[in-house]
Design a protein around this nucleic acid. Structure first.
Lengths: 143, 143
DNA sequence: ATATATGCAAAGGATTTGCAGCTAC
DNA sequence: GTAGCTGCAAATCCTTTGCATATAT
């Protein structure tokens, strides 16, 4: 998606929700799509802070919520008490392998696993809504 | 495993680690094996408090750590900021399906998924150490 | 003009930690 | 006797919130 399209989509969403277009919100959006990584709120805050717009941590958190709620970003829980955020734009579903040593994160998808998950949910009469699937270990370098 | 055996195993472990056998530690061990559920530290604290031994939250946390480190318990992260603990005694590996509405937790295992995970790790040259696999949705009652 | 944002600092909630007194061994 | 506990309250860490001021529309 072009960044013009994205920005206009974001503005439409904000309008729809009765929210205003502010420099801070644009900055967080730009930051989340610029980097394909899995970053903490603090990283995004620092990146915006250093490069341009005046922003506060509170506003970063508030804006990240808006992005997550409206399909622009995903929030990840890696079990260490700090949320990670990644762009959802042009980024299909995937899960993660995380290195316990250096923190490196690789994305993976496996259709077979996705299918089995559905079967398991059916077996227990659950209606599946989301899932978390994370593999932890040592990457090649850290072994 | 009989609870006598378990208790004596626990004492051996404590000794090995240079730790003392205290009523609080015994109480946390008993509590973790008594209930097959997935409980928060607070629940375990309350259960012990109400039924017998004088204990503090700090000691419950400290003892749960000892139990986890020594293979008596597992610590679960369900993504809501509160850790859950479950017995690991006579309890083989499994993952969890959680109801988003009522919080009900069901355990599942699927050998096929376990196998594919290993393949994925190999493919990315990771040495697998642990994994988290949680399915979230609505249970039969909550749909 | 005014409804909504922002920034700040204070509040939250789970968990951890420092320390003085207590208890296993 | 003494190394190792325990309880308490204070401290942490990430995240959220209240509120007065600022800004988008």
């Amino acid at each position: 998606m072009t960044s013009e399209k994205l920005l206009s989509d974001f503005k439409v969403v904000l309008k729809k929700e009765g929210l205003k277009v502010t420099p801070q919100r644009i900055a967080v959006l730009e930051e989340i799509i610029k980097d394909k990584g899995h970053r903490e709120s603090e990283d995004i805050y620092m990146a915006i802070k250093i490069r341009k717009t005046h922003v506060s941590r509170a506003t970063v958190y508030r804006t990240l919520d808006i992005l997550v709620q409206n399909g622009f970003a995903r929030k990840l829980n890696l079990g260490d008490g700090r949320a990670r955020y990644e762009t959802k734009i042009d980024s299909p579903h995937h899960d993660h392998i995380i290195c316990n040593e250096c923190g490196k994160i690789i994305e993976f998808v496996n259709d077979e696993i996705e299918k089995i998950q559905e079967e398991i949910a059916k077996q227990y009469q659950f209606k599946l809504q989301q899932h978390i699937h994370q593999l932890f270990g040592l990457c090649k370098k850290c072994q």
